[in-house]
Simulated assay, not measured.
Amino acid sequence: MNRVKKVLINLVLPLIVIFILFTYNLFLGIAGILAYIAYIAYTIRTAIFVFLGNIRYSKGDLKGSSEYLRRAYITGKCKPATTASYAYLLLKSGNIEESEKILERLAASDISSDDKMLVKSNLALVYWKKGMIDEAVDMLTEVFESYRNTTVYGSLGYMLILKGDLERALTFNLEAYDYNGSNHVILDNLGQTYYLRGEYEKSLEIFEKLVSQKPSSPSTYYNYGLLLDKLGRPADALENLKKALGYNITFLSAVTEDEIKDKISDIEKRMG
């Protein structure tokens, strides 16, 4: 019944009004059509902004995508997933405070369980960037208990590495590998875990599989470069470290431009 009422109000009634306007005057009818189009555009503006934001994101325009999602957000009619995406883009550009504020407000609101897990997954990234690794691990562990997917496996696996709990990191990242052994983040995590444990041949096997897939993450080539340098292959290490600089490094990247350049400088000095 509500659907019928909506159709009557939003379609049938306006068409009747436009028809009446045309019977009085051609220009009044045209004005009525233009007003109706403007009304429709206004009512679906949130969806339009989200659509345009998604197009910008697919083209790699993070700034443009963030701006359209900001416009969608301020309409107050965003779906939780869209709001979480906007907060993620804010974080990716380095705006921690605003991202955290939006995510915490969303987490405290009345949203579905799946949406809440998505929000908490993003909030864990905020904690990571604030240096709150234990809190990030705890939150992702909570999410993992009821919401498991490749992204959560990747995020929690990396946080366990940062925490320094290499035993748990290895167990978890092997489980992640069983879950999705082709995902770049999961492979990077496992290869890095082996590297930090001194299991260089196992690490090499994982990284060779990963780089053969030509990932676009600078951290992959950086970590691979560290491994190759450890294995006594400085020239190959330099090649991969320089390759890392060719990819987009954002606030959410696991390595900074300075870290890459410092390692390159270190190897070049040793090579003479």
Rank of each mutant, 00 (worst) to 15 (best):
A176L: 02
K202M: 10
N149S: 03
K202W: 02
G157V: 04
N183A: 14
I206T: 05
L160M: 13
N189G: 10
N173G: 03
K163L: 08
D178G: 06
A169Y: 06
I186R: 02
R168I: 12
E175F: 07
R168K: 15
T151H: 05
L190M: 12
T193S: 06
L166M: 12
S203G: 05
L187N: 10
V185T: 15
L162C: 07
T171I: 09
L196S: 08
Y194E: 04
E167N: 13
R197C: 12
L196I: 10
T150Y: 03
E167F: 06
G191M: 11
E208W: 08
T151G: 00
Y194K: 09
V185F: 12
T171D: 15
G191T: 15
G154A: 13
K202I: 04
F172V: 01
L170W: 00
N183Q: 05
T193Y: 03
D178A: 12
M159L: 14
L166V: 12
L204D: 08
I206Q: 00
L170S: 09
D188A: 13
I161S: 02
I206P: 04
T150E: 04
L156E: 01
L156R: 00
V152H: 07
L190P: 10
V185G: 01
L162F: 02
R148N: 09
E208D: 14
S155G: 02
A176D: 00
G198A: 11
Y158G: 05
T150R: 14
N173H: 03
E208T: 04
L170M: 09
I186F: 03
I186A: 06
N149F: 00
G154L: 03
L156I: 02
L170V: 09
E201P: 01
N149I: 02
L174T: 01
Y147F: 15
E208K: 13
K163D: 03
S182R: 10
E175G: 01
R168M: 13
G181H: 08
M159K: 05
T150C: 01
F207W: 10
L187A: 11
G191P: 15
Y179S: 02
L204E: 14
R168T: 14
S155M: 07
N189R: 08
R148A: 06
Y177A: 06
Y194G: 10
Y195P: 03
L174K: 15
N189Y: 07
V152R: 04
Y147C: 02
S203D: 05
L190A: 11
I161T: 09
H184M: 09
R197A: 13
E201V: 11
N183M: 00
G191R: 11
L204A: 14
S182Q: 13
Q192F: 13
A176R: 01
Y179W: 06
Y177I: 00
L174P: 00
G191V: 15
E167I: 13
Y195W: 10
S155I: 04
V185K: 07
D165A: 12
Y179T: 03
N149Y: 03
S182P: 04
A176E: 01
S203N: 08
G181S: 07
N149G: 00
G154Q: 09
N173C: 02
L174F: 00
L204M: 14
N149D: 06
S203C: 07
L162W: 06
L170G: 07
R197L: 15
L160N: 01
Y200T: 13
N183E: 03
I186S: 04
R197F: 06
